[in-house]
Simulated assay, not measured.
Amino acid sequence: MPLAIVRAGPADLDDLALLFDAYRQFYGQPADLARAREWLRSRLRLGEAVALLARRDGAAVGFAQLYPIFSSVRTARLWVLNDLYVAADARRSGVGRTLLDSAAAFARSDGAAGIALETARDNAAARALYRAAGWREDATQWYSLDFAAGVH
């Protein structure tokens, strides 16, 4: 079963939205396919994100979504691998690793200085995948203000 990774475009939006909705549900959000589709459509149309779609025998089985950021200190573009999801029936078959490698190849070809991601410390499966793919963990501390939660 050959696996193909493509940069998602308008023709891929319906398949991508199904996976994105499942991804959001995985993280405790309610199912909302229309919201997922509109979010993706806007990000891709405005050039605010790049989505890589994994297809096996034509079926969409996973995706990675990257957002650009910029480092003032490095005076360079970086990419954040914000979303990575593989459908449950396609896990442990190399889809996640292929998406990671494809995301890194995309960032390199874009001339970026690097690529970063963040995941929960208790997400052992994801952390093992990232380490196996050559990613390294660091001690950077992220802080946030959650405006929806009424903080500041």
Rank of each mutant, 00 (worst) to 15 (best):
R108Y: 02
R56V: 14
Q65S: 08
A124C: 01
L78P: 00
T119G: 11
L145T: 07
G9L: 02
S93R: 10
A107C: 15
T140E: 10
A64N: 01
A104I: 08
A17S: 11
R77D: 09
R77V: 12
P68S: 13
G150R: 05
I69S: 14
A8E: 00
V95Q: 00
S72W: 02
L3V: 07
A76V: 05
S42R: 15
H152M: 07
V86I: 00
P2R: 03
F63D: 01
N123F: 12
N82C: 03
D146W: 05
S102V: 02
T98M: 10
V80S: 14
A87K: 05
I115T: 03
R7C: 06
N123S: 08
A148G: 14
A113H: 11
L99G: 00
T75D: 10
M1H: 12
W39I: 14
L117H: 10
P2C: 01
A112W: 08
E38G: 06
N82K: 13
R24I: 06
R91S: 12
H152E: 08
I115Q: 06
A22F: 14
A51G: 04
G58I: 11
A34G: 09
G94K: 02
G28F: 06
S72E: 01
L78W: 13
R43Q: 15
R131N: 03
R35S: 14
E118L: 09
V73W: 12
R41F: 12
A36N: 11
V50G: 04
Y130R: 05
A22G: 08
S42C: 15
V95D: 03
V6Y: 02
G111A: 05
G94P: 12
D21K: 03
Q25E: 12
A128W: 01
A87S: 15
G9E: 02
Q65L: 13
T75Q: 09
V61W: 11
A133G: 08
Q29A: 13
N123E: 04
F70M: 06
D21T: 04
A31R: 11
D83C: 08
A107S: 15
P2K: 03
G96M: 09
R97N: 12
F147Y: 15
G28M: 05
E118R: 07
A60H: 07
R74E: 13
D15Q: 09
V86C: 01
D21R: 00
L19K: 07
F20G: 03
Y143S: 07
R41C: 10
R35L: 15
R24E: 09
Q29W: 11
L16H: 01
A8V: 00
A54P: 03
G9F: 06
R7D: 09
A116I: 12
R43T: 05
R7W: 06
A76G: 10
L66A: 11
H152N: 03
L81R: 04
E118I: 09
L66F: 14
L33D: 00
T119L: 07
T140V: 06
